[in-house]
Design a protein around this nucleic acid. Sequence first.
RNA 1: GGCGCUGUAGCUCAGUUGGUUAGAGCGCCGCCCUGUCACGGCGGAGGUCGUGGGUUCGAGCCCCAUCAGCGUCGCCA
Length: 586
Amino acid sequence: MKRFSCGALRAANDGTGAELCGWVHRRRDHGGLIFIDLRDRDGITQIVFDPQHAAFSDAEHLRSEDVLRVRGRVRKRPAGTENTRLATGDVELAVEELEILNRSQVPPFQVNLEENPEESLRLEYRYLDLRRPRMQRNLTIRHRIIKAMRDFFDEREFIEIETPMLIKGTPEGARDYLVPSRLYPGTFYALPQSPQLLKQICMIAGFGRYMQIARCMRDEDLRSDRQPEFTQLDVEMSFCSQEEVLDVMESCMRFVWKRVLSLELAPFPRMAFADAMERFGTDKPDVRFGLELARVGDLFASTEFAVFKSVLESGGEVVGVRYPGGAALSRREFDALVDDAKQSGAKGMVWVALGADGVKSSAQRFIGEAQADPIAQRLRAERGDALLLFADERDAVFTVAGKMRSEIARRCGLRRDDDFAFCWVTDFPYLEIDAETGKPVPAHHPFTAPMEGEWDLIERDPLRMRAQHYDMVLNGYELGSGSIRIHKPELQRRIFEMLGMSREQVEEQFGFFVRALDYGAPPHGGMALGIDRIAMIACGEENLHEVIAFPKTQTARDLMMDAPAPASEKQLRDLHLLPSQRSQRG
RNA sequence: GGCGCUGUAGCUCAGUUGGUUAGAGCGCCGCCCUGUCACGGCGGAGGUCGUGGGUUCGAGCCCCAUCAGCGUCGCCA
């Protein structure tokens, strides 16, 4: 007798014998007739027990999450009792043979409900949580995404190379997860934050086109879009231009979206970092909607409004953003919006409501009909909209306005999760000023090549230098970064020098890599994309937990396994983290 | 490390200005039911109100501390 999955049977199977295996999703016991919805990864099929068959008496004792094997005959449901909400809803299996493969305890939460139980409960009983159709669907989509990526790169003659998990740590960047060495007391491996240097060495080794579905670890605090271990699509190519990398990565995403979601993606818009900051106030702009920021400081050149005046005189800027339909807000609602803005780092916020009956503003004395008009024009605002204005130093003001732009979009329902707006951000500055030390540090990593023709800035004016670095952004999430790398050893040394690293420091941390550059490193570049985030957005989810089988809590714990956990004394001694027995006695 | 939200039955939640015996839906248990699909009907069990302290004649509710989950800032070259 043929075994079918629980999502497979159709009217065409009417009359055939079939075997199904799965879990009891739901039971409907009518006394003289018992319906069970049997569930597996593929779907749900209704199976029916009637009293003529011996199985009926056992079926009376079936409960949620029991595991069954049933054999019987597929039959069309009686006219009028089809279930259009099930793919298998035209048929049912009339059970003749029931085998109870395993019983289940009453589960701590109902697997057959859509609503999420509390997060910690889901994580503790992850095997039950993962049985829910939503999670089965999400992890299946994730699998298809990864499969599509591998197929895409395989067709283009990239090869997947596995890089080690036990590597050398770097003091720069994120905190490393360390693994103590047993054979070398007092020394540690680090788990990779990314295979960056190893994939570059694969280029030096002549592999030309590399990819890897790479696991990465960073011991930093978590967020809804950040886990301590994550998976990235890691790509590196030799003899390529930035243009070729952008093209292959964009093509890959187009291929994935087409294959997995059956959607055609338009060409990704591109913008320079500086433009992204001006237009959107962030280097990861959400371009699902417009509402672009605009400078309006020049319109207040002769204002008497003290707040704007003083900011403008000290070299700051006034930036506006449009709030569609915002004129309908009450004074109280505007006040709350001002609080939101302050929460986002604003010094304050001026609102201008373009009401049908005239202009109202929180700076009424200074912004009337005449002043509001040109601002509205620049922000492409109409009657019924509101304008939000922010004044601050040049860097800060765009960031704040950008956060409020995003908040406005949320309120106006412009952030649809079935809308996928990719874009590229390019031409990043090479350096940024470290907030703590005030010293210049690489905005990304020190193996990034400076923009062609700007190398002389290394000595002359390093802060103005730009990097051959690019980010792919989707719906306001940074999916990942890439760059053209430095392949000339002398340029790499000049960069380390600019960063204030001594010859000894370079040798100790990156000696193996700098040496490799000396033996004929080809020009190369690449990119890494966060697969967890891609899967999250593709699934319409807002938390990585929904697309990772066994995620960690915000405090980096695994509630199912209860990790991390203490190690035994013997383990600690072996790893030289406790004095050995012998030296204790001695 | 900072800030915020949440924590009440197995689950999801309600619980009034602090006042009698803390409720609902689902689940669970028992009985009934031959066309349901969130089946239906009748009955029942089930609670240290996260934990510890305090205020009060009296605390699920107010205060302090603490734990956990989530969100957010710092952090994530």
